[in-house]
Computed example of a mutant assay.
Amino acid sequence: MVIGIMAIEMVGGVYCPLSPRDPDQRLHALVQQNRSRIVLTHWLTVNRFGNKIVTCRNEAMLDCEAESSDMITQRISNVPITPSHISYVIFTSGSTGIPKAVQVRQKNFLQCMYALTCVDSILKNDTIVQMARCSFDIHVQEIMGSLIIGASLIMLHPSEKAGNKRVVQYLRSICSGGEPFPIKLLSSLNNMNFSNVIVSNLYGPAETTMDSTFHLFDITKNIDIISIGCLLPNYTCYIFDEHFRSVPINQEGELYIGGAGVFAGYLHRDDLTSKALIHIDSDIYYRTGDIVRVDANGALHYRGRKDQQVKIRGQRIELGEIEKCILNTSVSACIVIKWGEDHLVAYVQGSDVTENQLRDHCQSHLPPHMVPSMFIILDKLPLNANGKVDR
């Protein structure tokens, strides 16, 4: 995987990870959506793609003859790559029922990595433990970012745990992101002998290149609230109310992020890009949809979403994508909600379908984290006073 990622970048290609956990139908749909010329596979995954998709085994890149290495090096050095070239594309859930392909430029990625080094989140002499799945954009930082700045990289086997003694002895800092930092995690880190390790809470949507804010804190102190901190260097932000007016301190509003990490747009979806990116004083900002407040010390506090987007174990999910998938069956109406911390529940209106049929349909079209835990079939979904489905 590491060789594949670096090879794609070195020859001027665009890296777009596909998760082997996704069903075959979704993998084929994503390949068609991003119009990939070739899919780089592992010997365990090559059979997931049919004859209509050109594949190349990752191991084949190791079969180059030694005497041709100088020629290969010369060819790679002549590949023109500019800061505006796309470095990678990462898929995120889409409310329209179709995943969105976030395009991140070379300069976005490099500036984000530079910002992280400025706040000592990652340093040249660090040893990075690679933990994130390829469906998380943070894996690009863990793998490609670590090697670019000269850090060492530990690739954990899926069966290994990051808390074992063999790994802990190398750690200088721990970074948490993807979801609000749970207070109960502090005691767990102390019990794992991480009291002398720097812990930081990072925040940032894929559209602003992995991380946009950071907050360093001491896990040995009593902490009631953990903020998402302050902006990384080269990032800017505004917090606006529903009337596009700046909100005062400690008042909630929607977060708009600008600066070095703002992405190039959604691949082949100019309509969605125009809604997500806005111009403020001749600069481009991404409207996150996240509701935040800023305290008197300038720290940002995450307060929730302005829409139906949720997070399940760090994965960003548009409930509308699941609902549209279910509506492709015989049901006439559907509502999906988040239940507890890690579960999704689908309420469907229909009489000619069973829970098993709905589950099988979702499992064949959606990634595992987007398949509802429960399907509740009703004769009719409840409506509110306006005649709309009452969530």
Rank of each mutant, 00 (worst) to 15 (best):
S373V: 12
H365I: 09
L327D: 08
L327R: 03
M370K: 05
Q315F: 13
D307N: 08
S351I: 13
I335C: 09
D307L: 08
Q308A: 15
K306H: 11
I337S: 06
S351Q: 14
E323R: 02
N328L: 11
D360M: 14
S330E: 06
I317K: 06
D360I: 14
I377H: 04
G314S: 02
Y347K: 05
N384M: 07
H369E: 15
V371K: 05
D295I: 07
A296K: 13
D342Q: 12
L327V: 04
S332L: 12
L327Q: 00
Q349M: 08
V345M: 02
T329S: 09
L344V: 07
H365K: 14
S330P: 01
V345I: 10
C325A: 07
S332Q: 11
A333C: 09
V348D: 00
E318W: 06
A299P: 10
G320T: 07
H365A: 10
L378N: 14
L378M: 15
F375A: 03
S332P: 10
K324A: 07
G320L: 02
E355D: 12
R313C: 11
M374D: 15
D352L: 10
E355Q: 11
D295E: 09
Q357M: 10
R303P: 05
D295K: 05
D352A: 14
N386H: 14
G304M: 02
K324M: 08
G350N: 04
G304K: 01
S351Y: 15
K380V: 14
C325V: 01
V348W: 06
E318N: 10
C362T: 01
Y302R: 00
Y347G: 05
D307M: 07
V348P: 01
E323N: 04
K380A: 12
P368D: 06
D360R: 13
N384R: 07
K338L: 08
S332E: 12
H361D: 10
V353K: 03
R303M: 08
L366N: 00
I322L: 03
S373H: 11
N386V: 11
V353C: 04
V348F: 01
D360F: 15
K311Q: 10
V345H: 03
Q363D: 09
G304P: 02
H365D: 10
G304F: 01
L358Y: 02
K380C: 13
V348K: 01
L327P: 02
V336L: 04
I326K: 01
R303T: 08
D295Q: 00
I376V: 12
T354R: 04
R305F: 01
E341I: 13
K338N: 07
A299F: 12
K324Y: 10
K311D: 07
V336H: 00
V345L: 07
